[in-house]
Computed example of a mutant assay.
Amino acid sequence: MGYSLFSLDPGTVSWRFKALDSGFPFVLITAPADYRPLRHERQAAQPGFTVRALVFGAQAIEEVRYCLGEGLGLPMRLDEQGVWQAEATGAAGVAASLTLTVEARDATGRLGRHRLLPARAPYQPPCQPGAARIGAWEENGGFGHAAGPQPQRKTKQFNQRSVPTS
Rank of each mutant, 00 (worst) to 15 (best):
E41S: 14
S162M: 10
P10T: 15
F6H: 09
E62Q: 07
D34Y: 12
F24Q: 03
T12H: 09
V94D: 12
G142P: 00
G23L: 05
E63F: 02
R77F: 01
E63D: 08
P164W: 03
T50V: 08
P37T: 15
V64E: 06
Q124I: 14
Q43F: 00
G90Y: 15
A132G: 13
A119W: 15
C67T: 07
S162C: 09
F24L: 02
P122L: 09
A147W: 14
Y35V: 15
F17A: 11
S22P: 01
Q160E: 09
L8Y: 12
I29C: 05
A131H: 15
V102W: 06
G135L: 02
D9F: 15
C127I: 06
L54Y: 11
P75W: 13
R52E: 04
G57E: 07
A136P: 11
I134T: 13
L28P: 01
E138K: 04
P32L: 10
A121L: 00
I61T: 15
G11P: 05
Q81K: 14
Q160P: 01
C127E: 09
E87T: 04
R65P: 02
P125R: 03
Q43W: 11
A147Q: 13
A136H: 12
Y123K: 05
Q124N: 04
P25H: 08
I29N: 00
A86H: 07
E63W: 02
R161M: 07
L28S: 02
L111A: 01
N159C: 02
P125D: 07
R65T: 13
M76T: 08
I29L: 02
P122T: 08
V94C: 10
H145T: 08
A31W: 13
I61Q: 13
A86R: 12
A58P: 06
G11I: 05
A132F: 15
A136D: 08
G82W: 02
V13R: 10
V27E: 06
V163D: 04
L8W: 10
Q160G: 04
L20R: 14
R153T: 10
T12I: 15
P32S: 12
P10F: 15
R110D: 03
Q128M: 05
V55N: 04
Q152L: 10
P164L: 09
V51C: 11
G73P: 07
A86C: 09
G144M: 02
V51D: 03
A88F: 04
T50H: 02
V64G: 08
T108Y: 02
A104S: 06
A33S: 10
L117N: 14
L100H: 06
W84N: 03
E62I: 02
T101W: 00
A121M: 00
V55K: 10
R39H: 15
Q59T: 03
G142F: 00
P75Q: 13
D34C: 07
